[in-house]
Simulated assay, not measured.
Amino acid sequence: MTSRELAEMMQRSPADCHKALVREYGRYVYAIVFNRLRGCGTKEDIEECVSDVFADLFMKCQFDLSSENDIKSLIGTIAQRKSIDRFRSLCAKSKHITDTDDDDMTELASDFSVDEHVDRTELRRVLLDKIDELGEPDSTILIQKFYYNKNSSEIASYLSMTAVAVRQRCSRAMDKLRAKLVEVGIER
């Protein structure tokens, strides 16, 4: 959802805009907040913080009608900041976290990050959608090559094409895919 779409929706119906935002970004915000508060907060604390994120988004943010930028990064930043503030207030109330030393905290750290996992999942979903938009046989060629690690000869026999044709189609499909990903703000 872009800033322009959000501003237009907000002018039509703030309630519908809020519902659409929660429907589209609710899991993303929940993952960020949960990752920060899972060690010190209750389920109610997490849900309250998620609600605060969306309330803060509506109360403090003005959306630019001319902007085509995706607001996901804005929402992610607000969620990070709100969850950090909530974490600090919860820790201040329950002195048990602040009394531990640094050695104990390293044992509590986890290598798994929920918000990074959600971001990777979202990126995969967008990537597969854009590959699907390429149509046949380009989408099949890219899927077979990059997801199933098949070479050009194997793909060619599967699609009844020559290996040279598969390589050429793959190259062109990659160029088209890059352009589609740039359109949605994904660059690498």
Rank of each mutant, 00 (worst) to 15 (best):
D85N: 05
M10N: 10
A15P: 02
S73V: 06
R36E: 15
E5W: 00
Q11R: 14
F34Y: 14
T2P: 04
K60Y: 15
R86T: 02
I84P: 08
I32M: 03
V114F: 14
V22W: 08
S110V: 06
H117C: 12
R23H: 00
S110M: 03
L74T: 09
H117V: 08
S3V: 00
T121R: 12
R172D: 11
S113Y: 09
V118I: 11
A20L: 03
E68H: 02
V182I: 11
K19H: 02
D101M: 08
C91D: 03
D52K: 06
R178M: 08
L6T: 13
D138C: 05
E44Q: 15
G41K: 02
H18W: 09
D45E: 00
F34A: 09
N149V: 11
D52S: 08
T77N: 12
I155C: 01
E8L: 14
T98I: 15
R124W: 04
R167I: 10
S94W: 08
A79N: 06
E154F: 07
E122V: 07
S171I: 07
K43C: 05
R12G: 04
V33C: 02
L123K: 05
R12I: 04
L37A: 10
S157D: 14
D45P: 01
L57T: 03
T100C: 10
S66C: 03
F87R: 00
H96G: 08
D70V: 05
I46W: 06
L57V: 00
F54M: 06
F34P: 04
C40F: 04
F54P: 05
C40Q: 07
D138N: 10
D102A: 13
K72M: 04
Q80K: 14
A173W: 13
S160R: 12
T77I: 06
L6K: 08
E68Y: 01
S139I: 00
N35A: 10
G185D: 12
A31S: 06
L65S: 13
E48S: 09
R12P: 01
S67N: 07
E68D: 07
R38I: 14
D102E: 14
G185E: 09
V166Y: 10
D52P: 01
A20I: 01
R124S: 04
D104M: 12
Q168C: 03
I78Y: 03
E47S: 14
E5D: 06
K19T: 02
N151L: 00
S113W: 12
H18I: 04
R125N: 04
K176S: 13
F63L: 02
C91N: 02
R81N: 05
S3H: 05
E133Q: 11
R36Q: 15
R38N: 15
S83F: 00
R169Y: 09
S13C: 05
L134A: 05
K60C: 10
L159D: 13
I97E: 14
A79Q: 07
A156Q: 11
S139Q: 02
S171F: 14
S171Q: 11
V53S: 08
M105P: 07
K176D: 15
V182Q: 13
R169A: 13
R88W: 06
N149G: 14
L177C: 02
A163R: 09
A173E: 10
N149K: 15
L74W: 01
K93E: 13
L177E: 11
